[in-house]
């Protein structure tokens, strides 16, 4: 089973440079949520991402059929802004609360934080503790990536292409990325110890896939969310059967989205 799971988890990363999320591979069925993140993260590579989604989804179905009849449930999270509109690209983590047996994690995964048009792509990435993240620079200009966040301070001297080895994120926490040349470039890597995580899709939804029955703390985060962090965690009990719905309605307006503005003929270094 585990072997199959691992293989399943690997299907997603294969395509489209979107191996963002394999993250922790919980007992089964991580494929679907991770692929939805992948699809979004891939941005311009929608076609290939779609292939990835399809492959992952198929794998998921396959795994579901193969899954033992353990008691398991699912969590369906939706994030809505103050006006009731879906909020996309919100990081969702499911951490088991007390009383849930420890969930075994798969081998450390890999992920990619790309750089294009003077922006990090994706702007927000969620990875499990221990994930090694590649920072390829596919832009026309060089970047100098850094973080001074406590969870992972690091610096990648000026480069293009893939000059630097991946960076291993071995501590939980939020890592804010910057470029020392382009101050407007900002990216976020959420390093989580939670066994289940992902991001909301265009409809503001995230489905955990199958998770063991029990109590969980469901937390949402996005750089655009202005609500106090203390209001963004929901304690839920996941029972076997239909999905447990978690609805997060934000009280504060979202922060403005910084759209990168690549300028024609703009030769700022």
């Amino acid at each position: 089973m585990t072997a199959v799971t691992r293989r399943g988890a690997r299907v997603t990363p294969l395509d489209a440079g979107v191996r963002m999320l394999p993250g922790m591979s919980p007992p089964r069925l991580r494929a679907r949520p991770s692929s939805s993140l992948a699809a979004r993260a891939a941005g311009g590579q929608r076609t290939r991402a779609t292939v990835a989604v399809t492959v992952a989804f198929t794998t998921g179905l396959l795994l579901m059929l193969l899954a033992p009849a353990a008691r398991a449930g699912e969590v369906a999270v939706s994030v809505l802004d103050r006006g009731g509109h879906a909020v996309e690209a919100v990081v969702v983590t499911l951490a088991p609360a007390h009383g849930v047996p420890a969930i075994r994690r798969a081998a450390p995964a890999t992920a990619i934080m790309d750089q294009r048009d003077r922006a990090f792509v994706p702007r927000v990435l969620v990875v499990g503790v221990g994930t090694s993240v590649d920072f390829p620079n596919n832009d026309s200009v060089s970047h100098q990536v850094y973080s001074f966040s406590a969870a992972k301070p690091f610096q990648l001297p000026l480069y293009k292409g893939t000059r630097h080895p991946p960076v291993v994120f071995d501590r939980e926490g939020l890592v804010v990325l910057g470029c020392n040349i382009h101050d407007q470039m900002t990216g976020y890597i959420v390093v989580t110890g939670a066994p289940f995580f992902g991001m909301t899709d265009a409809a503001g939804g995230y489905r955990s896939g199958t998770v063991p029955e029990g109590d969980y703390d469901v937390t949402v985060w996005s750089p655009l969310i202005a609500d106090a962090a203390t209001t963004l965690t929901r304690h839920v009990h996941v029972a076997a059967g239909g999905p447990t719905d978690v609805r997060v309605r934000l009280a504060q307006a979202l922060r403005a989205r910084p759209e990168p503005r690549p300028r024609r003929g703009d030769w700022e270094y």
Binding site: S149, V176, G178, D183, T186, R255
Partner: peptide, 13 residues
């Protein structure tokens, strides 16, 4: 001296 607000959740500097 530039205070990089983005690292503190503020969208500017």
């Amino acid at each position: 001296a530039r205070w990089l607000g983005s690292a503190r959740g503020y969208g500017g500097d």
